[in-house]
């Protein structure tokens, strides 16, 4: 299963990813993504692959990768 890898050192809490992937991510009270799947790097199901790719592109800090 491919995972959404969040580089926490880059993330600045813009929140684009959580808008695109509400199934996998929520935002904490400071605006930083929380994995909703219980995994450190949430697995991206096939049905969300396109949204995942979009989230990777939308992150202004390039903190996301799918791998």
């Amino acid at each position: 299963m491919r995972r959404l890898l969040i580089d926490r050192t880059r993330c600045d809490g813009h929140g684009s990813c959580a808008e695109l992937l509400p199934e996998l991510l929520d935002l904490d009270e400071w605006g930083f993504p929380i994995s909703l799947t219980g995994e450190r790097d949430p697995a991206v199901p096939r049905s969300l692959a396109a949204h995942g790719e979009r989230a990777v592109r939308a992150c202004p800090l390039m903190a996301l990768r799918i791998g």
């Binding site: 926490r8 050192t9 904490d28 009270e29 400071w30 930083f32």
Partner: peptide, 9 residues
């Protein structure tokens, strides 16, 4: 001082 959850939490 890099990761948001740590810096804030």
């Amino acid at each position: 001082g890099q990761c948001g959850p740590c810096v804030n939490g």
